[in-house]
Amino acid sequence: MIAANENLRLAVPRGRILEELLPLMAEAGIEPEPAFYDKQERKLEFASNIPNLSILRVRSFDIATFVAFGVAQIGIAGRDVLMEFDFPEVYAPLDLGIGACRMVVAQSRELHEKDNPRRWSHVRVATKYPEITRRHFAARGVQAECVKLNGAMEIAPSLGLCRRIVDLVSTGSTLEANGLEEVEEIAKITSRLVVNRAAMKTRPEEIHGWIDRFEEARDAA
């Protein structure tokens, strides 16, 4: 047996979700070192008040990958990222309820008025989520040709890159501002506490302990 103080890494996303996550981490008793809060700080791994727990601050899109490969044993990842990568090695045992939004198909308003989605056989879609998009359309018998973009999907239709997009919306104001109309919802998205499968199997008590702490923190919020 390896000692219980073996290092444990928690991967957390930079940006928007982090703001919502910090209170939960505090409630769960995790206090990152001061440098963690410094947006200019270049380092990616931070110590915490818990001796064997370090925190990785990475792009939200990379968290599932870090956890799948066991580099981080636990992490906080959006359901969108989990659906896109679909790693069998990642368990998502706890819905933290933060970062709530929806993943939708949208198209330009003019198109929307005369279009009947039943008739689609092939669509070209700009998206950050080519896998989810392909799967979603394939399930309803439509072939999706995806144009992979990493941001600014909303502007693609008006520029003539494609006529439809698949993206996350929270209030819908970005769609509105870009002359887009929602066609259908693919999934409701929230952030999940995710766990590496091998870590869950080989360090069960420790990992379950953290799941319980985050669950209590979520319920207290």
């Binding site: 069998p88 368990y91 998502a92 706890l94 819905d95 869950m200 008590e205």
Partner: peptide, 29 residues
Amino acid sequence: VDRKDVGAVRESGQNLADELSRLMAGTGK
């Protein structure tokens, strides 16, 4: 269930939601 996604199982697990969730919580030593 494969993903141990307790939230989703509670939503769509119908009459077995409770049984399945407790089974998932039963993993470990």
